[in-house]
Design a protein around this nucleic acid. Structure first.
Lengths: 341, 341
DNA sequence: CATGCCTGTCGAAGCGTTTCCGCGAAGCGC
DNA sequence: GCGCTTCGCGGAAACGCTTCGACAGGCATG
């Protein structure tokens, strides 16, 4: 509760010198700086947030908007929120949560009142209404996810296309000629932005590589494991020797369960690659090759772009895609009966 | 981006009149008020957040601290965060998220800088370090959950004792003489504050009513359904005719699965009551009697107390427990072979 | 020795609200 | 018609910080 003038008095300098010493925006003599730092410590001074906002042009707050759709996968979502908060903090920023209907309304509000310096947009839908909003306000925003119409926006995401292509290439290189993709639940292809990207890239690349390929959605919360198991069964029955899985942990479990129940081995009989998994793949009973979706990476980049958009070197609008990384866990091998080793 | 003086000019009044008209802290002539409101609309004025904080003594921000322990159940947690944000918004408050290590460090920081008016404490552990912190700062705080040492703190929670007692009474009244409790995973009894409360109250009340009773933990994420099924089997084998379940949805599913596999009917052979469930009990394949833990109730109350702690009528420190509500879904009946109907 | 240039510091002007104090006009009772 | 209260409103002082412009002194340069 000490104020800056008390610090100044205690250190025997002027208020402005204290301010400069703390912000580092102007050089201060080492001896002076030391006295000031001591005074700060002794008095337990920390600058008043409101005064800082008013005088400076920074609030040191980012908004995080998240509509929280019904079908949002809670654990994944939590990882992103956490990662965003941690990343923001590293740049001396706090995070203001705008959930639910406040995702849009609040976004306009905090922009108008100047409560935040920038806005991080989470849980992006293909036709997200926050796209228009972002364009209409002058608070910079960074989308974590790619809406259909992203003209002029700064977007961050895993390069899902490249990820899907990488996975397809890997199994194709291993000699597989027929592959399947177990995707997200049906609703995700309507409400979310990335599942369709994986699917499309999968199909395109499989075609390019001359592979037979097929796609199935997985089960959602209600229909549970059954749908997924059936999907797995269908793909295997159709002759697929490699499966890519783009889904949550329980879907992976169901896929592995079905494979095990059939007495098939990984990678001896079936090869598996997990694409864009955002959970800890280590919780699964079987080690799987994975191209992870790392919330920390996306959020770190998003925060960096947000910070930079407050400087003269604003980041250029457009897609900032993170290159996929492939982790080999020996769940991909040549298909059974193949002539190669 | 319009400022209050522009509004004043446009409406032909002074700045202070605009302020009073908007805050309602002093009466303003209807005609004047109308002119001001129009000017506000025309100019799209919204008061600058920083200036408001500095001049007024309110920031209109609550902090929400959540350490996010490893074992936190993501969906439940999300419900609480969402409920808190919604409740806060109804009182014209925004929510600043302090996760992870910032749960404590950030709590001290936002208090010192005056960034927030009050602090909501989530995810409370029995020996929570935020207890000491809360006492040492002068920003009011409200705990959602009850730490062991809650002397002088304002705490909100479901009355777990009463809930457990209510459930025990219900099955006892129905004629059961041997009952079981399927609780949370083991770790929850060390790290969380409420599971032990349910267990203790269960045991006390069952003893008071002269019931044979037994307790089992459920399985966690890794050990999955097996542990829970075994626990269920053990309780049933020991002769329990009624089971109380205090756990997440998948544990409920496992319990129901085990009962179904044994060819037992609910409530014909076994009676079930779900205690303090925070998920939508409707997702289960079978309707169950439930005493729900409603995040909205807790958070609404917490916000109300937080708001009130900023007024002269500060709420008195202590436990503010929400009375449990019993929803009858016909999953409790007389035990098999009982003489009554 | 005068000049100019750094370096380190200070004073003061904002930043956009809220709120205290006070003033004029209108309404009231006598 | 006079003094009183009440009502509506305006002026101006905070609120605590950042930052611009200025200035003194020390140093090297011509």
């Amino acid at each position: 509760m000490a104020k800056i003038n008390e610090v100044a008095e205690a250190a025997g300098v002027s208020i402005s010198t204290v301010s400069y010493a703390l912000s580092g925006k102007r050089p201060v003599a080492p001896a002076t700086r030391k006295r000031i730092e001591e005074a700060v410590r002794d008095l337990g001074y920390s600058p008043n947030a409101g005064a800082r906002m008013l005088a400076g042009s920074r609030t040191h707050i980012f908004a995080l908007t998240e509509p929280l759709r019904r079908d949002t996968h809670a654990p994944t979502h939590m990882s992103f929120v956490l990662a965003a908060a941690v990343a923001a903090r590293r740049s001396d920023y706090d995070v203001l949560l705008l959930t639910d209907e406040q995702a849009s309304a609040g976004m306009a509000r905090v922009a108008a009142t100047g409560l935040v310096d920038a806005i991080l947009v989470l849980d992006v839908a293909p036709d997200d209404e926050r796209v228009a909003l972002a364009r209409s306000i002058d608070t910079p925003s960074v989308f974590i996810g790619v809406p259909n119409d992203h003209e002029g926006l700064v977007c961050v995401d895993l390069d899902f296309d490249a990820a899907a292509q990488l996975a397809v290439d890997r199994v194709a290189d291993a000699g597989h000629r027929a592959i399947g993709l177990i995707g997200q639940p049906q609703v995700a292809y309507e409400k979310s932005n990335f599942p369709p990207r994986v699917r499309t890239a999968f199909e395109r690349r499989a075609t390019e590589r001359g592979l037979r390929h097929d796609f199935r959605v997985s089960g959602d919360r209600m229909s549970s494991a059954d749908v997924t198991r059936r999907a797995t069964a269908e793909l295997l029955d159709a002759g697929a020797t490699a499966l890519l899985v783009h889904a949550t942990d329980d879907v992976h479990e169901a896929v592995l369960g079905e494979i095990a129940d059939r007495g098939l081995g990984i990678p001896g009989d079936v090869s598996i690659v997990s694409v864009a998994a955002s959970f800890d793949i280590g919780v699964l009973p079987q080690a799987l090759d994975v191209i992870p979706l790392v919330p920390e990476s996306s959020c770190d980049l998003a925060v960096e772009l947000a910070v930079r958009s407050l400087t003269p070197e604003r980041p250029e609008p457009g897609l900032h895609l993170l290159p996929p990384v492939y982790y080999d866990r020996a769940s991909v091998a040549a298909p059974p009966g193949s002539r190669r080793v």
